[in-house]
């Protein structure tokens, strides 16, 4: 084999690897060494990538408790949840009736008001304040803002209109305003997230 001292290069693989058991064993070691380096490099990438995921302090902020005792029927508040607005709205009986009067099958994103609220608390409509089109904050949660043609929310960016159950009725948005996970920890406190 390639044991003649001097000029002949013993290449790790390729043309010379056809002859003999020894050569094959050598190829195997070279391939194993390169593979080990490759695996090591790939595993090293994992922390480099995961460092960009939300850090522990950000994740710790991922639930918010809101006191809703001061919200009168017909009013809404904007609260902060995961650094985004969330709308908590106390619906009037009229708004509930309007929402329930709409045939669900006629909607772009078919959902009833019941699907979007907790049983026994149908007057509390809690949705993200993030338009499902491109992420603007729709108007309608604060006093005196434009609530749009359907009495719910109106997104000024591209004209999406939401009804009193915050369902998309007109405009470019594909989905209803998202309902986050939440539960009532008492009659006056709701925990989001």
């Amino acid at each position: 084999m390639a044991d003649h001292a001097g000029t002949q290069a013993v290449l790790p693989s390729g043309a010379e690897s056809s002859g003999g058991e020894g050569v094959r064993r050598r190829d195997f070691i070279n391939i194993a060494a390169v593979s080990a380096a490759g695996v090591g490099g790939l595993v090293t990438l994992l922390p480099l990538i995961s460092q960009m995921a939300p850090s522990a302090d950000v994740l710790a902020e991922s639930s918010t408790e809101i006191d809703i005792s001061a919200i009168q029927p017909g009013q809404a508040i904007k609260a902060m949840f995961r650094k985004q607005p969330v709308f908590v709205r106390n619906l009037t009986p009229k708004e509930i009736a309007e929402a329930e009067a709409v045939p669900v099958s006629s909607l772009r994103d078919p959902q009833s008001l019941k699907d979007r609220t907790k049983a026994g608390k149908e007057n509390w409509l809690i949705t993200m304040g993030v338009c499902t089109h491109l992420g603007c904050v729709p108007l309608g949660a604060s006093e005196g803002e434009n609530k749009g043609e359907f009495g719910g929310y109106f997104c000024p960016c591209h004209g999406s209109q939401y009804d009193t159950a915050a369902r998309i009725r007109k405009g470019p948005a594909p989905k209803n305003l998202e309902v986050p996970d939440y539960k009532f920890t008492s009659d006056t406190v709701v925990k989001i997230g």
Binding site: P47, Q51, A53, S55, A56, D57, V58
Partner: peptide
């Protein structure tokens, strides 16, 4: 210290 404590693998970086 935020890097050392809260960022994923931040201590290692």
């Amino acid at each position: 210290e935020h890097i050392m404590r809260d960022v994923n693998w931040g201590w290692m970086m």
